[in-house]
């Protein structure tokens, strides 16, 4: 019985095993190639500092991607939220007000995004493209017309947040646990997955499709707003380039973590965790090893392709008909 159950277990959990095997492979490979320096105290702290921003956004994006949504505005929204936070804090408001302002801006962006998508039946990626242009445009306009750099005048408290290991670990654990619970144990997560599998069937089963999408985007908005503060705590400044490419980093991290970008019942919160760590360790390890910059993108591409290829070999029975 037990002999039969091992192959069955592997077959049943193929995707989960692939995502963890990928992470393990990256960790082992770079630990060996760096003579253990990858796991040094200094580098673990480096990885955690880089992880907190990407992970926070990725958790939010799991809610969006699980119902088949797609967002490419995260980087621009981070820039806009960070800019608003800087102006709020520099005006003398307490840090908490600055954080709330950043979250409010981010949530507003995601609400506009989902409302446009819901009202006009637009593909989510198109509405997020519009939000990306507007948010990036606002930041670029402000940066280009501002006589001075848009930077925090007093970096004290925020800088501590960005460099304090206890705070960073607490945030990672908190975001991960809350995200996991909401996604796997509440209606929001379950309904999101149902919509991702088949929106019509979900609707006919009593799932409020538009409402679920709205809440999912709101959660993503809150987390992207929080990520903008975490990002700001690392740079203390906003430019026209702030958050540039972050949306792609998140998508790549989620795919590396085994997330199916068309969502559905196979969506897992662990994709955010595993994918973010894999992505950060991969970037960190390539620099640590001293890989020639000309081949860095190629190596990343090959690893990405390999993971996508393995995940694509999903048994047909697991995919729900649409």
């Amino acid at each position: 019985m037990s002999e039969l159950s091992i192959p069955l277990f592997i077959k049943k959990n193929q995707n989960t095993l692939i995502q963890y095997a990928g992470l393990l492979l990256v960790l082992i490979a770079f630990t060996v190639m760096t003579d253990g320096a990858l796991l040094s105290d200094f580098n673990i702290r480096t990885i955690l500092k880089q992880l907190v921003v990407l992970f926070t956004i990725s958790v939010g994006m799991v809610f969006v991607f699980s119902h088949g949504g797609m967002d490419i505005s995260a980087g621009a929204v981070i820039a806009l939220s960070s800019m608003v936070a800087i102006y709020t804090i520099n005006a003398g408001a307490p840090l908490a007000v600055g954080v709330l302002a950043a979250i409010a801006v981010s949530v507003a962006c995601y609400m506009v995004n989902v409302i446009i998508s819901n009202l006009f039946g637009l593909m989510a990626v198109i509405s997020s493209l519009a939000i990306m242009f507007v948010a990036r445009g606002l930041v670029t306009y402000q940066v280009s017309t501002s006589s001075a750099k848009i930077a925090l005048t007093d970096t004290g408290v925020l800088r501590e947040i960005g460099r304090s290991m206890p705070i960073i670990i607490t945030i990672i654990v908190l975001v991960g646990v809350v995200g996991y619970v909401i996604f796997h144990f509440t209606k929001i997560g379950k309904h999101s997955k149902a919509i991702g599998d088949n929106p019509l069937a979900a609707s006919q089963s009593g799932v409020r499709v538009k409402y679920t999408k709205l809440i999912s985007y709101a959660i993503a908005g809150v987390l992207v707003g929080c990520a903008s503060i975490l990002s700001l705590s690392r740079s203390a400044v906003v430019s026209e380039n702030t958050g540039m490419g972050m949306e792609m980093d998140v998508i790549v991290a989620l795919v590396l973590g085994g997330m199916a970008l068309n969502g559905g019942s196979r969506s897992k919160m662990s994709s955010a965790f595993v994918g973010s760590i894999t992505y950060v360790v991969l970037n960190n390890g390539l620099v640590m090893v001293g890989v020639a910059p000309e081949v860095v993108s190629l190596i990343r591409g090959i690893i990405f392709l390999l993971v996508v290829f393995l995940l694509l070999r999903r048994p047909r029975g697991e995919v729900m008909p649409r």
Binding site: V238, N241, T242, G243, M244, G245, M246, V287, V296, S297
Partner: peptide, 8 residues
């Protein structure tokens, strides 16, 4: 090292 243009 190749770096992107953003602060992060």
């Amino acid at each position: 090292a190749t770096v992107g243009s953003s602060e992060e």
